[in-house]
Every structure is written in structure tokens, then in C-alpha cells.
């Protein structure tokens, strides 16, 4: 399946990925309205890690055998049949945070702003290119077909 690949050597820490992630997951999909009206309730679904000049945007790694899916007590965390992405069914999530405990990449965060559920990357609902990739000004994120990351790593 297609996965987001991080090129930390090109990340400039501008956090435009955060801006566009938030807009993509807003109801208006308009950058100004999203920040003005919905900022109190929604948050970016990726995390920008920074240490000195090193920085990168971290999203869910879309594991082949996701620990979060196994640990989920309510069945909210599931694999979307259409896109293959691991996503959180917001109507079923109870906010127990087990997924956060087990995520090996630390890519899931608590959304304490409004919904009180787990906030994670959904690859922009099967979009051709996720918003963070499409709007990175320096090519620090790419969207590539990577068949099986566990096998590749082994």
C-alpha cells in the first residue's frame, strides 16, 4: 500500500504540514475558517519532532500488524477496507488511550480539545496525496508505494 515516507534531511520545521493537516480534517476545509472557527476542537493528526536543526513530521506508520488495532478495547481502531489505512472510528472510540500506550512510533495523540478520542493520521481518507505531503514546500514527505514494511525491514 501507499505510505508516507519521511525525509528528515529535507524537513525545515515550518509546520505547514500541521496547518494543512488541520484544514483537511476541518468541516470547512478552508484554512482561515478552520483556524478561526474550529481550532478549539480539532488538532493536526501528525506530530512535528524537533531537536536542533533536525526535524521531521511524524504520522502513523501504517504498520502491517498494528499493535493499536490489537490493543483497542472498543473495536474503534480498524483497517479501512477501501484504502488499507489504519483508522480510528470516532463513533466507537472511548478514549481509553491503549492505542497510545502501544504505538511503537508514538504517532497517536489524545485529542483533548473536543471529541476526547484518539487522534491519528488517516492518510486523508484515501486522497491521491495526503495534505501534508502535497503541501510540504521542500519535499520532506513523499507518498510512495511500499508493499510490506515489516518484510522490508527484516
Amino acid at each position: 500500500m501507499k505510505r508516507i515516507v519521511i525525509h528528515e534531511e529535507h524537513c525545515i520545521g515550518c509546520r505547514l504540514c500541521e496547518v494543512h493537516c488541520l484544514v483537511q480534517h476541518s468541516s470547512s476545509r478552508d484554512v482561515i475558517k478552520a483556524y478561526r472557527r474550529e481550532r478549539a476542537l480539532i488538532m493536526p493528526r501528525l506530530i512535528v519532532e524537533e531537536s536542533g536543526p533536525l526535524s521531521f513530521a511524524l504520522q502513523c506508520r501504517q504498520c502491517d500488524e498494528p499493535s493499536c488495532l490489537e490493543a483497542c478495547i472498543s473495536g474503534a481502531m480498524h483497517r479501512d477496507e477501501r484504502t488499507g489505512a489504519v483508522v480510528c472510528d470516532e463513533s466507537r472510540c472511548v478514549g481509553c488511550w491503549m492505542c497510545i500506550m502501544v504505538c511503537p512510533a508514538g504517532a497517536i495523540r489524545q485529542n483533548l480539545l473536543g471529541t476526547h478520542i484518539a487522534s491519528k493520521c488517516d492518510l486523508c481518507y484515501g486522497a491521491e496525496e495526503p495534505a501534508c505531503v502535497a503541501n510540504c514546500p521542500n519535499g520532506a514527505l513523499t507518498y510512495e508505494d511500499i508493499p510490506d514494511q515489516e518484510e522490508g525491514a527484516a
Partner: peptide
């Protein structure tokens, strides 16, 4: 100011 969303991209850049 009607457009600025305080995202601070300008601050970082």
C-alpha cells in the same frame, strides 16, 4: 489580520 491564523510559519522561517 483578517487572514492571519497565527500558525507561526513566518516566525519559524
Amino acid at each position: 489580520l483578517s487572514r492571519c491564523i497565527s500558525c507561526q510559519v513566518c516566525v519559524r522561517q
